[in-house]
Design a protein around this nucleic acid. Structure first.
Lengths: 256, 256
DNA sequence: TGTATAATTTTTGTCGACAAAATAGTTTGC
DNA sequence: GCAAACTATTTTGTCGACAAAAATTATACA
């Protein structure tokens, strides 16, 4: 039940929407004069964003030569970026064949939801325990960003700002192991949500804003039990929304 | 409070004990005639093992040229392996300077223990939920290996077989996210335990054997509450042993 | 003698090239 | 007309080379 795309759909996505987003120029970068050592990092960031935004849809092959030409550098830093992305599971290298963007395995979603829920709980709990005033300030700022995108009914931005909000909470919990896993899960979740983002414009986001506020209050009060309960409720809410999106089956980025 | 080594200690470790273990030849590999595409994988495995066994101690720099010569291949596959290891946190790349084996951060050990304990619990719990008879067979086999190494009082083998036992339980839980994190934590734990393995020959391992048996029984009975409780007790036991080892401060691989 | 500067060596990050594998395309046989 | 075998092209994995950066050594100067 992996999601797959025909070659036409892939090309549609890739060519047609390649240069949208944060005003990237077609030439993609002035070419020469990059800082030494920043090459692979840059490729990594570009690819990561395109994968999470589904500009590179699941299953699509990544052509090293083409990328090298587009970003005007040699294949070496591109390969390094691909190895890193493979380590994070965003990309799957097929031996002696092209590397492809990892598929979204809908059959193992319960596994994903289990991990996501537990990480919601444990990071919020730890944030209640270890946060500093500076952390709270950042968290509140992220929450303001999220509320603004809900105001605007911008589903895509909601997904991104929601991610940043919870990532900030995780940071306040000060456990790299949990933060790393949680961010990986949030990334994976972003890919799934992007598939269904047109369903994201209902009454639920407003509820999320309220729940976020409650979580902030619980964190500030350092009441880890309430943190845990709120996080679990929030996670369950999100999980059931994703599940209902999937069962309704309105994937947005598989058009035509 | 990161652990550091003088250059002499590093050389002692590296040169003196490099070729011990599973009968690796000094030449390290027949050189030519490797399968295409296996190069980086091989380097990865060699480095990983040497890092976990502290043959390459924390903080020691990894010389790409030297490695390339030792394994008789070019720097390209070596760099790929290093990127992968960096992704797993076993190695830390210093920009424009050599990559070093990641330090063990004793100041953040509580963070490590938190994550380890939670993963012990959740993987055992999930194993109770999702295991198959085949899983149980593997788990029992790993437990037999562990019991044998306790019998032999071989502390180094205890560490390895204990790792495999719990990894098998995690596999039975069928959640890649948890399994991945757990294995990373077990690897990190292996490095710490190796530092103190001489303290590992007391009465505790026998107790671990018993606790393992109880966990197997709970998994087989599919009683996830007992699974959870036993896993927590087991984790607490191990954590407190490591803490007492550290407070006693008898590091074995920092000799002379 | 000690310290700051300059020259030298070592090491990393990137590049272009090449051979093994796989893919695509063409020819041959039935 | 279709399938199998062969050829050509594309693409990956690896290599050696080179330049930028850092580390090391040598030199100048107080």
């Amino acid at each position: 039940m992996d999601i797959t795309f025909t070659r036409e759909q892939m090309l549609w996505n890739h060519k047609g929407h390649q240069a949208r987003g944060k005003g990237k120029s077609m030439a993609e970068k002035p070419a020469r004069e990059r800082k030494r050592g920043s090459g692979a990092q840059y490729v990594y960031e570009v690819l990561r964003e395109e994968i999470l935004d589904l500009i590179l849809p699941p299953g699509s092959p990544i052509d090293e030569n083409q990328l090298a030409e587009r970003l005007s550098m040699s294949r070496t830093p591109i390969r390094e970026a691909l190895v890193r992305l493979a380590g994070e599971g965003l990309v799957t290298p097929l031996p002696n064949r092209s590397t492809v963007v990892s598929n979204i395995d809908f059959l193992s979603l319960h596994t994903f939801f289990d991990a996501l829920t537990l990480m919601y709980r444990v990071t919020t709990r730890l944030a209640g325990e270890y946060h500093t005033p500076a952390d709270l300030q950042i968290i509140r700022s992220r929450q303001a960003d999220f509320a603004r995108s809900v105001e605007r009914q911008d589903a895509l931005e909601m997904i991104a700002t929601n991610r940043e909000f919870h990532a900030a909470i995780a940071e306040a919990g000060r456990n790299v192991y949990f933060t790393n896993l949680f961010c990986r899960l949030l990334d994976e979740g972003q890919r799934i949500l992007r598939l269904y983002y047109s369903s994201f414009n209902d009454q639920l986001p407003q509820r999320y804003v309220v729940e976020h506020e409650q979580m902030i209050a619980a964190i500030e009060a350092r009441d880890i039990n309430i943190c845990d309960r709120l996080a679990k409720a929030h996670a369950d809410q999100i999980v059931s929304q994703i599940q209902s999106m999937i069962s309704r089956g309105v994937a947005h980025t598989i058009p035509l």
